[in-house]
């Protein structure tokens, strides 16, 4: 599904060129859940933009769905640490936003609005937001906004979901709740996910493969397969193999931070 081939990205700043990533290679299969972890400033967010075609690599090639990426992808759903809900739209209208932009939904939006609303309501119900569709984002808690943000990222049934630390601003309980929400959606809809995070437990709980990135200029220095049976229960986080995995990842990152 996604292949990054020896990507280098440099961008000019006032203090000369900064190399964000160098020789970055990454492979994600269709339907796979990939997590990317690394020290802060290692170019994790740059990786997001590279994959979605929002920035072009200086060197190397990005391949998504067997096509070289030359501009914005048009098929990806994205969610960020900040829910980024539009405050003048109700939750329902926020979730419907991608359908007003992505074809083929866009041209049929007027005729098929009723069925789209039904779809959005079903999606909102699946993340525990039934009955909230006519509220405004600012009437809801951060966790609820983030649930709605996930719905917005998935309403057009994208083949690819890109998540940039989506749960980082939430409290521990809400975060674990949303891990399960995301797990269930992924089990059900089978899209490809790239999750950028600095939470190693989050990566280990959700992902099939965890890619560890080096300090800037970033590249993937290690890929770890996560073998726990799926769908996983939160209890898996308290088993010795899970703790060992998180510990191992932690040491990897500690090493790249000091080197």
């Amino acid at each position: 599904m996604i292949r990054l081939e020896a990507i280098t990205l440099a961008y000019p700043t006032r203090h000369g060129d900064v190399v964000a990533v160098r020789d970055l290679s990454l492979d994600v299969k269709r339907g796979e859940f990939a997590a990317v972890v690394g020290p802060s400033g290692c170019g994790k967010s740059t990786l997001m933009k590279l994959v979605t075609g929002l920035v072009k690599p200086t060197k190397g090639r990005v391949v998504v769905d067997n096509h070289t990426v030359n501009g914005p992808l048009k098929i990806a759903g994205m969610a960020f640490q900040n829910a980024n809900m539009l405050p003048w739209r109700s939750v329902l209208d926020n979730v419907l936003l991608p359908l007003e932009i992505v074809e083929p939904f866009r041209s049929q939006f007027r005729q098929k609005r009723a069925s789209y609303v039904e779809r959005a309501e079903a999606l909102l119900t699946s993340v525990g937001l039934s009955g909230f569709s006519h509220r405004y984002p600012w009437e809801m808690s951060g966790g609820m906004q983030q649930r709605a943000s996930l719905c917005r990222a998935l309403i057009h049934e994208p083949a690819l979901l890109m998540l940039d630390e989506p749960f980082a601003a939430l409290d521990a309980f809400t975060r674990e709740e949303l891990w399960c929400v995301l797990r269930d959606m992924w089990q059900r809809l089978q899209f490809t996910v790239v999750l950028v995070t600095h939470d190693l437990r989050e990566a280990a709980f959700l992902a099939d493969h965890i890619h560890v990135m080096s300090a800037r200029p970033g590249r993937v220095i290690k890929t770890k397969h996560v073998a726990f049976e799926k769908p996983r229960d939160l209890d898996v986080c308290y088993t010795p193999p899970f703790v060992d995995l998180v510990h191992e990842l932690r040491q990897d990152i500690a090493e790249v931070r000091t080197s």
């Binding site: 979605t52 990806a76 936003l97 932009i101």
Partner: peptide, 23 residues
């Protein structure tokens, strides 16, 4: 406009006009 909001829309294939009208 929040750059992230712009990213969300551009990754959906929105052009400049869409971004202006919607956001």
């Amino acid at each position: 406009i929040e750059p992230e909001m712009e990213d969300v829309l551009r990754a959906l294939g929105a052009n400049k006009l869409d971004i202006m009208l919607k956001v």
